[in-house]
Computed example of a mutant assay.
Amino acid sequence: QAEMWFGAGRGARSAVVVLFGSGVGACVVTDPTGPGRAVEWGHLKVRVRGRRCRCGALGCLEAYAGAEALLERWREAGGRPPEGADEETALTAMLTAAYPAEAGTAPDATALAVLEETAEYLGAGFADLINLFQPERILVGGWAGLQLGTRFLETVEGYAREYALKYPAAHVDIGLGMLGPDAVTVGAAILPLADFFARGGRRTEPEGEAAEEQPAWATTVRERTAH
């Protein structure tokens, strides 16, 4: 909601906002002023008889692309996430190892390989969103999405366009959300406002017995006014 009103979704009639954190989720918006529809995109199947997801099923996108799964796959491949670090700190370490900032520093081949494989899985997942919903925009957010997106969103987009149907793929823009980690908080704060607008800017009047019941403070005010 926040991205559609104030962020990267402004002006679009339809969009999919995907959030990456410990897991993976998405929200489909077909009315810029209305509420979005949550979809279990993270449990889309990207590999038959694949990794066991924390939901219990096999081959889910979340089993490959969520921060928890990324760090687990890095560890299984021989990587060394910082001991005792939280997921955000460990993911930062993984990205720094794969894409070192210092010139002349060799990237960690293991971390890089896991991330490159993940980019293809995500591209396939984006392609499914494109084929199913044909959105004008796909916006990436969430604390992990913002970290990952700045590093390899271009690669993910390349795979998405390769795997998706050509026509809808040619009519979608893929990018990062503009509101950063505060997007969800801002969106939650404006939900009452969105509901108010949806009702035409009018309060819902109580009906029946509810209309007759008055809160205690209203009775007190009337009594004091009478005296």
Rank of each mutant, 00 (worst) to 15 (best):
T89Q: 13
P181K: 12
V114G: 01
F133I: 00
A113I: 05
F126A: 00
R161Y: 06
D195I: 07
D173W: 08
L95H: 10
V156S: 01
L95W: 09
A183R: 06
P135N: 03
Y167T: 11
A106Y: 07
P107L: 09
E72C: 03
E72Y: 05
A183M: 06
P107N: 08
K166F: 13
R199N: 13
G123L: 07
G84Y: 09
F133Q: 02
E117K: 08
D128I: 06
E154Q: 13
L193N: 01
D108F: 09
E157Q: 10
A77T: 09
F197Y: 13
A77G: 04
P82L: 12
G84I: 12
A90G: 03
Q147W: 08
Q134S: 14
V114Y: 04
R137Q: 10
G104S: 08
L95K: 10
P82I: 10
F126C: 02
A160M: 05
A90F: 11
L71G: 06
A170P: 00
M94T: 07
N131Q: 04
G149K: 05
E83H: 11
T110K: 13
I138L: 13
T118Y: 01
E154N: 01
N131T: 07
G142V: 06
A124L: 14
A90E: 04
A109P: 08
G104Q: 05
R75G: 00
P181D: 14
V140G: 00
T105V: 15
T185W: 10
R80E: 15
A164Q: 06
G158L: 02
A119C: 13
E162R: 15
A111S: 10
L176P: 02
T185C: 08
P81A: 10
P181C: 03
V186L: 15
T96V: 12
A198L: 12
E83S: 14
L122N: 02
T110R: 14
L193V: 14
M178D: 14
Y121L: 04
G149I: 06
T89W: 06
V184L: 12
G79S: 10
